[in-house]
């Protein structure tokens, strides 16, 4: 019996925080690729400490719904899941290449496949592009458009910047958007000065966050100048200093994220049948015909 466990941060204050986790779990459930799909949280229930004891299967894949490798994926989750013998070297990662480690979870005395976070998977690049398509409602968006991928800088976590650069570079290589830039919230190049970094009249701004919350709904919109105060709201697109900014909100809410979760599990050995194709198909942006 094959089980998927999606682990995410959650929140004591914001009910939206867990919404993407539940949505992606539902999308994956609908594919039937797993006998069960469970969710566990750091700030909600079931907690990381107790989620594994709710799992019935003997082939267990744990996928962290986090944007980068770092404190949570390397320390908190393995500790709280009680992965016996965990050491970050199990992943042998350069900060972007964590794939999976198979370890016994003491809590259930069974092996689990502990996967790298969704945010650093190569398939995440497609989700960022898909997010740009969704927010512009244009499945071919790219010509005459710039794309800004935004996240925390190195201050909080050096790997966070790495993940942002990684995806920005990959998208740039595709020559789809006129310009692609990685921007940061707490270091140069800063998202506050977005119009200065782009020549295009239209720029899609995609924050590399899992869920909408303080950073994506208050911090970034105010910093970028989409609004004076987040309570006023803003339009999409909103013009700031002559640049039309298409603010996408957290990339993690994009339905295609379910695909990355599946990719992580597949890389760790899960057998998925046609689930990957199914998810890519069901989460597509309508072409408008």
């Amino acid at each position: 019996m094959q089980s998927l466990v999606i682990v995410a941060h959650g929140s004591h204050l914001n009910p939206e925080s867990s919404a993407p986790t539940y949505d992606h779990a539902d999308t994956i459930r609908a594919t039937g690729a797993f006998d069960e799909v469970r969710t566990g949280f750091w700030k909600e229930e079931p907690h990381f400490r107790e989620v594994l004891r709710t799992v019935e299967g003997d082939e267990v894949y744990v996928v962290p719904l986090f944007v980068s490798e770092g404190y949570f994926t390397e320390q908190v989750i393995p500790r709280e899941l009680r992965l016996d013998g965990w050491d970050v070297s199990e992943w042998g990662s350069d900060g972007l290449s964590a794939d999976q480690a198979t370890l016994v979870a003491e809590d259930i005395d069974r092996e689990v496949h502990y996967c790298g976070p969704v945010g650093t998977h190569r398939a995440m690049t497609d989700v960022i592009v898909r997010r740009a398509e969704s927010v512009t409602d244009d499945p071919d968006v790219g010509d005459d458009f710039g794309l800004a991928v935004v996240g925390h800088g190195t201050e909080r976590n050096e790997n966070s910047a790495k993940a942002i650069e990684y995806h920005a570079d990959r998208i740039a290589e595709r020559d789809r958007f006129d310009e692609v830039k990685a921007l940061y919230m707490d270091e140069e190049p800063e998202v506050d000065d977005l119009p200065e970094h782009f020549e295009s009249d239209d720029v899609v701004l995609v924050p590399l966050f899992i869920a909408d919350g303080y950073h994506t709904q208050e911090d970034i919109p105010e910093d970028v100048g989409l609004c004076e105060d987040h309570t006023e709201g803003y339009d999409v697109p909103e013009t700031v200093d002559g640049t039309r900014i298409w603010y996408a909100g957290a990339v993690g809410t994009e339905p295609l994220m379910a695909d990355v979760v599946l990719e992580r599990a597949a890389d760790a050995g899960a057998s998925l049948g046609t689930a990957l194709d199914d998810v890519r198909e069901t989460t597509r942006v309508a072409t408008g015909d």
């Binding site: 229930e45 989620v51 004891r53």
Partner: peptide, 13 residues
């Protein structure tokens, strides 16, 4: 278990 997560699991243990 959705309304009271992991309560059955812990009660059982």
């Amino acid at each position: 278990e959705t309304i009271y997560p992991a309560t059955v699991a812990n009660w059982h243990r």
